[in-house]
Write a protein that binds this DNA or RNA. Structure first.
Lengths: 348, 348
DNA sequence: ATGAAAGCGCTAACAG
DNA sequence: CTGTTAGCGCTTTCAT
């Protein structure tokens, strides 16, 4: 077998012109059944493979999306990437994944590189407000709350308010009042979202927030362990529960508890967010607010396709979370009458 | 800002010819300092972005590798992908990840699609012996033992013999003789490798293998749980330890033990393989044979680059495993004198 | 329905 | 060191 035959050779083999061959191969209607048969046979026998690069140069459509995430090794993002890839594949596209590692410069380089690779669209979970940077015509969908700033950007995010209502509500309904929150870096939009959601849920439960503690983490397990340790070791009445902004930090917090011989959930309750599989292997299983990672990835690609198809149509989806009830939350004795027992858990 | 300017416009803007502009932009030596300045200024002011697709069509080098794995959501492969991406990025390449989901047809489609996308090289953890399929000139590196069949294929694998010596040796050295093995599907090469490694270690320890049980799994947690359940529930003297071919199945086995109120490790010891992070969140921490996932990804990309650079140089690397000692293995009473205590654990 | 011909934007000979 | 020129393989008018 010779090196890759091109469309001209196929055309010759089939005894038609290059254009007819091209039309036949790309399923164009204006081709006689006979020519089509001929071309298909020739292509098959010669092992023809269309050169997508050449086609892309001509059409400007390369069939590749770029996905820029903080870290593909984080199971949540791996899962999301999975969803994006599946949806892309179903639409004849593929996905290039790039890690920014929380580094704004790296992220910018990635975006630039994707743009010059002529990707058809970009999915990005931005570290910075680099969204302005992407004022090229390339369609873009932000993952998470970062897209909200620029009014002209599509995004797919989860409903943080609703998620916190599920997770924090679960704790409040079980009588927890001294709660340690492990949140993200305070300079990020996600942080503000979380804080306002916490405030909202607290208000909905008419609960006094004076027993709340807050610690920052970086979404990695070690930071969750450190944050939980700081709260458990500090003077004064200790916390009865931890609510972490993601599962990896929640799992870190479980480690901190164990290191102090604290029983989970008897001595310390823990609730995470994300719903990664790792949380199902612990004992007890981590109670967590599950974000629909796969669906987010799929939906983001769909938004991209829509934007490509309909020339600039913006999509803004907010997906609901669910609560996975594991065994890391205990009900503690109700000490005062201000606990509202009527607030239903598991609400949407 | 107008739509993407091309190199000709930059050349005009800089007052030089297209080729001089191209040379300046690609860092070619034969350009006067003055022209280079001019071109760079023009490019910057016009916001020029090189069209990689056009360049790729001309040079045949697209700067993209394809990585075909079973499931990117499996932490081991996500980690490996991470390593591959990092190394690719360091060499000005990016990588497209495709999931085969253990489906040979899907895998073949992916490979075909990658080839027609003109990727520079393919990393693949093959489901089938589809390696023959890739008899194109496209450089290819197999991940794992699958590459061994075709003598003309590069591969990067872990040293299974050494890994099993570490993991199984750890159990044998602690007196375990009734061991349940959870292995992969028996029609795959990895299975045969594992079995022969088990035989070798057993021989090295001069141990009687009559207490061994074998169950097949599919590398997902549920199958590990099911396999362990079958072994724990079967009549006769029960197993004291489980050795699983990957961590996800080992974690499934931990669940099976817990469901039966068995204490790990007092009632059942467990050893896994892979070294995924999820195993560090359990209590006790999973003892496991750590495969160097990130290094494998990096090394695979390096092999690809070498093959590209040196035109067909084949690379065959075998990377060593290490043992992560968690708390899932107990020492059981030595019942006979045939336990060789002198075999050192943690050997390389 | 088909063929001829014109590029997509870039690189790489080849001359100067 | 610089400019001219010829394509890479494909899609897509525009005639026929």
């Amino acid at each position: 077998m010779a090196s890759n035959p091109n469309i001209l050779e196929i055309a010759k083999l089939a005894g038609v012109s290059k254009s007819t061959a091209a039309r036949a191969l790309s399923g164009h209607p204006n081709v006689s059944a006979k020519s089509r048969k001929l071309v298909e046979a020739a292509a098959a026998s010669a092992g023809y493979q269309r050169n997508h690069v050449a086609a892309a140069l001509r059409t400007g459509r390369i069939g590749v999306f770029g996905l820029v995430v903080r870290d593909i090794a984080n199971p949540f993002w791996a899962e999301l990437a999975r969803g994006a890839q599946d949806e892309a594949e179903a639409n004849g596209r593929s996905v290039i994944v790039l890690n920014s590692d929380w580094d704004a410069a790296r992220e910018e380089r990635h975006v630039a590189s994707l743009l010059s690779t002529q990707v058809e669209g970009i999915l990005i979970s931005p570290v910075t407000r680099c969204l302005e940077l992407v004022r090229s015509e390339t369609p873009m969908v932000a993952l998470g709350s970062a897209g909200e700033g620029s009014p002209n950007t599509s995004y797919v995010r989860t409903d943080v308010d609703q998620g916190v209502r599920l997770g924090l509500g679960h704790l409040l309904a079980r009588g927890h009042r001294r709660i340690g929150f492990i949140v993200g870096r305070s300079d990020r939009r996600a942080y503000r979202h979380l804080m306002s959601a916490i405030k909202a849920t607290t208000a909905a439960y008419s609960v006094d927030a004076s027993g709340f503690m807050f610690e920052e983490g970086d979404y990695f397990p070690a930071s969750g362990e450190a944050a939980a340790s700081r709260m458990l070791d500090c003077a004064g009445p200790t916390i009865t529960a931890v609510f972490a902004a993601n599962d990896l930090m929640a799992l870190g917090a479980m480690r901190a508890a164990r290191a102090r011989q604290l029983d989970v959930p008897a001595d310390l309750s823990i609730v995470g967010m994300d719903g990664i599989e790792a949380g199902t292997f612990t004992h007890p299983v981590l109670t967590t607010v599950v974000k629909p990672a796969t669906a987010m990835g799929r939906e983001a690609v769909r938004a991209l396709l829509r934007e490509i198809r309909e020339g600039g149509a913006r999509t803004r989806s907010t997906l609901p979370c669910t609560l996975r009830t594991g065994g890391t939350v205990s009900t503690i004795a109700v000490r005062s009458r201000d606990v509202i027992e009527t607030v239903v858990e598991g609400e949407i």
